[in-house]
Write a protein that binds this DNA or RNA. Structure first.
Lengths: 177, 177
DNA sequence: GAAAACATATATCAAATCGATATATATCAA
DNA sequence: TTGATATATATCGATTTGATATATGTTTTC
């Protein structure tokens, strides 16, 4: 799912600027399972405009750079719908933290404990964040991914709580690498 | 954590070729939380060799291209260890499936059900795969990430089982987008 | 009340990564 | 024997990442 298609997805929820779209990927419900920065969003929007998948309206604002508001076209919706019916690539997780745990034996015990606690906090915080989200008038799809996220984050957070001492002691008991 | 550093990590477990390293990232315990293809591994090894982080030994084989066996150096180990004590970037999940569920209203019911079942199968399979792994003589770090993976995969698989009908009906009950 | 920090807004660029392809041979299955 | 899969290295275009540049408004802190 390339960034262009993801932008189309965001635009089905209403007119938005490149900056707005970035917010969806950084905060918002999207951020937990797809990311994109300005460096990919702006080129993607330019290409989408070029291909007639979106239209653009420039909104002048006092002082600040003009806001370019994008709206999805029928062609754009058709493109998104078609893409959603094509084969999907498997999920991909990138975790420096799990790599670190794998090589935990090479890390100073105090530092490893700190990293572990940070990791636990991140999962606990994400679970809490999703739980606190407003649910009124939210689409069933959004509701579903929210609940799946809560399940995932909280089960991992619990596992990390339950196995903290066991891991931190075993990883530094008389072995290398 | 760039590919060069990840390669060093693999090499702490013993001498390996670029092809071998690829296997670790495609199958093996690594594949679940970091990925890398030939296009990033070979350049990374060349750079690591250039910087003295690894040494290289060419193994001739009848017919097939020569095998280049890489070994991590002390400098390489120091580099890896230093990296493991530096700040880590947060985990990142990319899921076309969750994007699809978010826009489930735009997908034909039969197709959405198929996608859903594929997704469930992927999690169930991964949980089973990790559970079936040999544990004799495995390092505590490897053991830990394996168990965390089992927890994560099976909790999500269970959630997907438990909420299948609810999701598939609600997403197509009189609404758009 | 001034200074610093943060938010709004677009855009570009080098470096890293991804995904596909090329090359060559061995081995295993139909 | 034909085709598919595995071993092995390597490159290349396209995409993505992460940082930076530019310019101004708003909010917080000293």
């Amino acid at each position: 799912m390339d960034v262009k298609t993801l932008c189309l997805g965001v635009l089905t929820m209403g007119e938005a600027s490149g900056y707005d779209i970035r917010q969806y990927f950084e905060k918002g419900p999207f951020s937990h399972f797809c990311q994109a920065g300005y460096g990919s969003i702006y080129p993607a929007l330019a290409k989408a405009l070029d291909e007639g998948l979106v239209t653009c309206r420039t909104e002048s604002q006092g002082g600040r750079p003009d806001k370019k508001m994008y709206t999805i076209t029928e062609t754009g919706e058709a493109h998104l719908k078609a893409r959603l019916h094509q084969p999907l690539t498997p999920d991909r997780i990138r975790s420096d933290y799990l790599v670190s745990f794998l090589f935990g034996g090479m890390i100073e015990p105090e530092h490893l404990a700190k990293v572990y606690d940070d990791y636990h906090k991140a999962f606990a915080d994400n679970a809490a964040l999703l739980s606190s989200l407003e649910c009124d008038g939210v689409s069933p799809g959004r509701m579903f991914v929210r609940e799946l996220g809560i399940t995932m984050y909280s089960s991992v957070a619990k596992h990390l709580s339950d196995n903290r001492e066991q891991f931190l002691t075993s990883v530094h008991s008389g072995e290398k690498s």
